[in-house]
Amino acid sequence: MSETIIKQNTSIWDYANPTRFLGIADRIIPWLGGATILCIGLGLYLGFSAPEDYQQGSTVLIMFIHVPASWVAMMSYSVMTMSAIGTLVWRHPLADISLRAAAPIGAAFTFLGLLTGALWGKPMWGTYWVWDARLTSFLVLLIIYLGIIALAKAIEEPTTAARSLAIITLVGSINIPIIKFSVDWWNTLHQPASVSRLAKPAMDAVFLYPLLTMAVGFSLFFFTVHLMKMRNEILKRRIRTMKMTAARQAERG
């Protein structure tokens, strides 16, 4: 892996060295983890001490996890898209590692977004699921995530896998806006204004602050686990090379 890195004088490329990356990750992860716990703790405190919303009652509590989870689900795909570009343009080994590491986290948060959305929808709209534009495109996003994970598991050889994953991620990222837009269109023709009665008034600060705190907390969580998974992926590859060297030595001697 490490031979493919182009050595340059600029410092940003030094961080690309997997060994250096491991060192930095080891140092950062505890801090990020601590910040995550603090942030989510504060968010929970603010959320549970907030008064009931006059429209949504106590279900506003679900919003504090539903909205951040959905944001992180989308953020995760944009991280993957950037990683895909990194793989295709710069052939950067860490980009592929980042893409692989982000996929399961993104899938988990997409699932959470759908699940908490269903649990929020039941008391608010009277049903767990509607084929509304937003829900449908999120379901498609989940399937795309799962497909990418399946592909990552299916291809043994790391360099082929990296390119295939990057291309599929990129094609997906071009397609997601199209899916979103087409699902919007489809919805307007078939079921006008059945769900859009969820009015969105300018949010009160009492709700906005816990929501934003939770969003920051969830994002920090994403980056913590992302780093941890990247670290695992690097170690996994290291084990792989070590085993291959061992096999070669055994053959020779």
Partner: peptide, 10 residues
């Protein structure tokens, strides 16, 4: 099929 089907939604 898993990879392609979601992309054909539009």
């Amino acid at each position: 099929s898993i990879l392609v089907l979601p992309l054909t939604v539009p």
